[in-house]
């Protein structure tokens, strides 16, 4: 595509923004307001909202700060998807919109609504505190600043991606478990917990993990992948979740004999995953591959850890859910046997 060299022609089109409205002081329930404005190419949803606020209705309330996709303020649902308003191009949303010329803008889910597009972030901060989302340095405070920890590139890479998180809560908004259980730890907090756990400078690992395996913790996740698909920074959140689980199993396995219970929980996870995959097979074929490649070998490793004979050959990733179920059944048998032998 070429651009005329000495003049700039802006193409424009009319766009209707259907905006979620709720003011707790006067409204008994939320409603939608429509605003139609001309939008040229290159304009983001946030700039459109600013335009509407400045020119049509000053009372629309939303958060925005950096306007550069780094502060995490402007998370909202745009045509049903939780994302950042400041990095989302209007024309791109329109191209995918089911209703021509219309963009729906709603607040994030799973956090208490304050007003219009603004939700309360405090529950997320409380969870960060609850799960000690900080480094408790192994270096005593008195000797800080004197020398560096030596950290390998390899270790850095373990948490590099996780530190991209800007706490925008888009993943939180899409998490299926949170919809049912507001106390659930939340994907972003799992991610942050993982980031702390793999940092060798940290002394809290065990304590944090102990908290993570309790109710509402890491075992509640259904592997639905929504968080990872949503993440505005493309962070592989599931790697973090699996990382924590693997870690938990290893730690537990060494310490007590209830390891197989965890194994069971884990197997039921895989089963759930299987079901989910089945339900959404057309769009998630990758998920199946991933599951077979990653979860099964891990389960095997687990069983081995509990000194049980290795299961019959079940490796080889196979296509489709049928094969998956087949393998799964075999696996389950094994866990059951393993369980029995433990009881004896």
């Amino acid at each position: 595509m070429t651009v005329p060299i000495d003049q700039h022609i802006e193409q424009k089109q009319d766009v209707t923004f259907r905006i979620f409205r709720f003011n707790p002081q006067v409204d008994s329930k939320p409603y939608f307001d429509d605003y139609t404005i001309p939008v040229e190419r290159g304009i983001t949803v946030l700039r459109s909202l600013n335009y509407i606020k400045e020119h049509i209705d000053a009372s629309i309330s939303f958060r925005a700060f950096c306007q550069a996709g780094i502060c995490g303020s402007c998370g909202m649902r745009i045509n049903g998807l939780s994302q950042l308003a400041c990095t989302t191009q209007v024309w791109e949303v329109l191209a995918k919109s089911r209703e021509p010329g219309l963009i729906r803008v709603e607040p994030l889910r799973n956090l208490p609504l304050i007003k219009d597009l603004i939700v309360d972030m405090d529950p997320l901060v409380d969870k960060m505190k609850h799960y000690s989302n900080w480094i408790d340095s192994t270096m005593p405070e008195s000797s800080m600043g004197k020398k560096e920890f030596l950290i390998s590139e390899e270790e850095f890479l373990r948490y590099d991606k996780a530190t991209d998180c800007i706490l925008c809560a888009s993943c939180v908004s899409e998490c299926s478990i949170l919809r049912a259980n507001k106390e659930y730890v939340s994907p972003a907090v799992l991610l942050k917990s993982y980031r702390m756990n793999v940092d060798t400078r940290d002394a809290l690992h065990g304590q944090r993990l102990a908290e993570l395996v309790k109710d509402h913790g890491v075992w509640d996740c259904t592997h639905c992948y929504r968080c990872q698909e949503t993440c505005v920074k493309s962070i592989p959140i599931m790697d973090a979740i699996h990382g924590i689980r693997e870690d938990a199993i290893e730690l537990r396995g060494l310490k007590d004999t209830s390891g197989s219970k965890h194994a069971e929980a884990f197997m039921s996870d895989i089963e759930k995953k299987g079901k989910l995959v089945e339900a959404t097979l057309p769009i998630r074929t990758n998920g199946v591959f991933w599951t077979i490649q990653n979860l099964l070998p891990m389960a095997v490793k687990m069983i081995m850890k509990h000194r049980t004979p290795p299961p019959p050959p079940l490796v080889k990733p196979a296509k489709g859910i049928k094969v998956f179920r087949e393998l799964f059944r075999e696996m389950t048998e094994h866990v059951k046997q393993d369980h029995k032998s433990h009881k004896k």
């Binding site: 900080w134 480094i135 340095s137 270096m139 800080m144 600043g145 004197k146 020398k147 560096e148 920890f149 030596l150 950290i151 390998s152 590139e153 850095f156 948490y159 590099d160 530190t163 702390m196 940092d199 400078r201 940290d202």
Partner: peptide
């Protein structure tokens, strides 16, 4: 130098050189 190391000691994920220093 002190304050950058202090941050390092508290967990800032600085990129690293080949010899594992900041």
């Amino acid at each position: 130098p002190k304050i950058i190391r202090e941050l390092e000691n508290m967990g800032t994920p600085w990129s690293r050189m080949d010899d594992n220093t900041i």
